[in-house]
């Protein structure tokens, strides 16, 4: 690891809690992660894993009743939680951009594509009016929208889901950000459109030297687009490492289970190894490891104490007392 280069984004012990009805729920629990310049990191998890909350917490988008109760987020060396409101606004949308899941609700239906694009452009660059428009059209072309000048003046409802998502991506890269946080960017789209959008993201990442934090539940997407992956369960980080390594040799039983959930091609009717149970209720987490009810390798010590996140020799991080073990072994 090249220690002379500081990571672009460094999250240290980030913890987000939600308070309500007399209960406190830890949506994100003590997460430490980093994203290097030009790197793509995937955050994988199912519902309740905390992955979306984490993505929002980075730029302080968490609203009450949720709040960041511990940890810090260092972006380009500066703690985002220590910035003033105006400084933060320059970072958010400017140096860190977001792309969300549902383009239908992320775009304002009463404004044209151009009006929304130019809003982002004028907010974060010094381009105005004609120059903003020219730049906007250029962006639309860059993200693969054909007949860009006409589409610039179109309303969101006149565009297909895939095109809307491209518009979102155009808005996100308009400001030449260093980091793009994409939360389930293709989940609502048809599979052929998914491929197009993912390809676009990978190209942009390469061409613009963009770092990407990709939140998803789909392991196939991770395999095709990211270099590193972090797996979350019940708000905690349970595994992290290079995609190729993790997929070939998962350390945590949850990761192993997730990988096995995908039916192999051509396996008509063959036994599908499934993980029993479902994601835990964050308000009622047991002491010790949260995966216990579903884990095939449970030992008494798993229930006593939450395992620590340890780093292996190869640079893998795992939160398990028996990493790399196979059930039945």
């Amino acid at each position: 690891m090249d220690r002379s280069v500081m990571p672009l984004l460094q999250l240290d012990s980030l913890t987000v809690e939600y308070r309500g009805d007399g209960e406190v729920v830890r949506a994100v629990d003590d997460v430490t992660l980093s994203v290097e310049t030009g790197e793509s990191l995937a955050i994988v998890g199912e519902s309740g894993s905390g992955k979306t909350t984490l993505a929002l917490a980075v730029t302080r988008l968490i609203q009450p009743p949720g709040s960041v109760v511990a940890g810090r987020a260092l972006f380009e060396g500066r703690d985002l939680f220590a910035l003033r409101a105006d400084e933060l606004r320059r970072v958010r949308g400017g140096r860190i951009s977001y792309v969300f899941q549902d383009p239908a609700t992320s775009l304002n239906p009463v404004l044209t594509v151009g009006e929304q694009l130019s809003e982002a452009i004028e907010l974060h660059t010094d381009r105005r009016a004609e120059r903003a428009r020219a730049y906007g059209v250029e962006l639309l072309e860059r993200v693969g929208i054909r007949a860009a000048p006409q589409r610039y003046d179109a309303y969101p409802h006149e565009l297909s889901g895939g095109m809307r998502q491209r518009v979102m991506i155009a808005m996100a890269i308009a400001t030449r950000p260093k980091l793009l946080i994409a939360d389930e960017p293709t989940t609502a789209l048809d599979v052929t459109v998914q491929v197009q959008i993912l390809r676009l993201l990978v190209e942009l990442q390469r061409d613009l030297g963009l770092s990407m934090l990709l939140i998803t539940h789909d392991l196939t997407i991770v395999e095709r687009t990211c270099a590193r992956v972090a797996v979350m369960y019940a708000g905690r980080l349970v595994e992290e490492g290079a995609v190729a390594d993790v997929f070939a040799n998962p350390a945590h039983p949850y990761t192993r289970g997730l990988l096995a959930c995908r039916p192999a091609w051509g396996a008509v009717g063959r036994q599908l190894s499934t993980m029993p149970g479902q994601s835990p209720d964050l308000a009622k987490l047991p002491p010790g490891c949260a995966f216990v009810p579903r884990c095939p390798l449970v030992e008494p010590r798993c229930r006593e104490r939450l395992p620590t996140l340890d780093t292996t020799a190869e640079g893998r991080r795992v939160r398990c007392v028996k990493p790399f073990s196979k059930p039945g072994a």
Binding site: T192, Q196, L198, R224, W265
Partner: peptide
Amino acid sequence: IEQPNHPYTQLLLRCASLDLSTDLSQKED
């Protein structure tokens, strides 16, 4: 799955495994 006949089926199969090199230029979006 092994030998899809129709080009659309072929396309769908490649996209289903998220093959990012799939040629989608025919598809308008």
